[in-house]
Amino acid sequence: MRYAPLAVVTVLAAAHALLTGAWAREAFDYGSDLALWRAIFYVELALPLFVLWPAVVKTRRDVAEFLLGVLACAAASSAVMFAFAYLSSPGPVWQSRPVVFACWALCGGFMALAARFGGAWPARARIALVCVLGLPLLWHYFSLEYAQKSQLGLQSLSPHWYLAANATLDGGSVIAPLAIAGALALIAAAVWPKRKEAA
């Protein structure tokens, strides 16, 4: 967790360098700047799912410290994104901040809550988050294929799917469910009794 902001900065800087390169522009055939930004936002939105890994969260102080770490990660990723606003304008970065912060809040909240349980719970929480945030499109296709039922409603859970399916980068209907669930998880993590007391 201590080096998570460094991981965020490194991954985003590498993604920028990779995606803005001449060969990448030619290979992916970006029709507009918005397409390039969209590709980078996919990387940014994936980071909360993978870089957060709480060490030991036993007390409320540990929860607060972990949340400060999440905040540092979110601020570091925003700093890198704004630094690369030279590509067009800061407009797309501003537009996407609410959904990015909501994503960090959800992942941070659930990882903190899982860490209060200790053991394998953080790993389980990460898998659950990937399934809920990253894979609803897959569930939708499976549902269509095997049950002939649409699961389009799951789009409001997945920022990646929402960005892929909508022209704007603002996150729209995704933000509220993520932010509310993240806030509830944070509160739960904060009020959960100490592990010793629970034992």
Partner: peptide, 19 residues
């Protein structure tokens, strides 16, 4: 770790504003 995170967040906000 908290002072490190706090310092990182503050400096990141400054860099974001400059960017």
């Amino acid at each position: 770790a908290w002072p490190a995170f706090a310092a990182t967040a503050l400096i990141a906000v400054g860099i974001a504003i400059a960017g």
